[in-house]
Amino acid sequence: MNKSELIDALSKKENLTERQATDVVNLIFKGFNDELKKGGRIEIRGFGSFVVRDYGSYTGRNPKTGGTIQVAPKKLPFFKVGKELKERVNIK
């Protein structure tokens, strides 16, 4: 399911126009991006939480050539699945 399918499902379930459903979905995920960009943390009960982790610089290798390369420090978002969703995904 991609974003437009999510928008579609929301508009059908809640009787919203395409435009209205788009605004809601965009506001949520734009809000997520902005929050993580600020270095903040997001916690959605039953779904999961997002944090930004700092990774220091390290010496890596180019797997194709074998040459060493210096990998610059970077920030990456990390998702931890919430209890409810973890269980729902794993139902046998």
């Binding site: 399911m1 379930k13 979905v25």
Partner: peptide, 22 residues
């Protein structure tokens, strides 16, 4: 509802792709 739709989909083994987020 937005999170419920996502969870429902994932619970059924689906994949969710939100362009611009992940």
């Amino acid at each position: 509802q937005v999170f419920e739709i996502i969870k429902e989909n994932l619970a059924h083994g689906g994949k969710i792709k939100i362009s611009g987020f992940g």
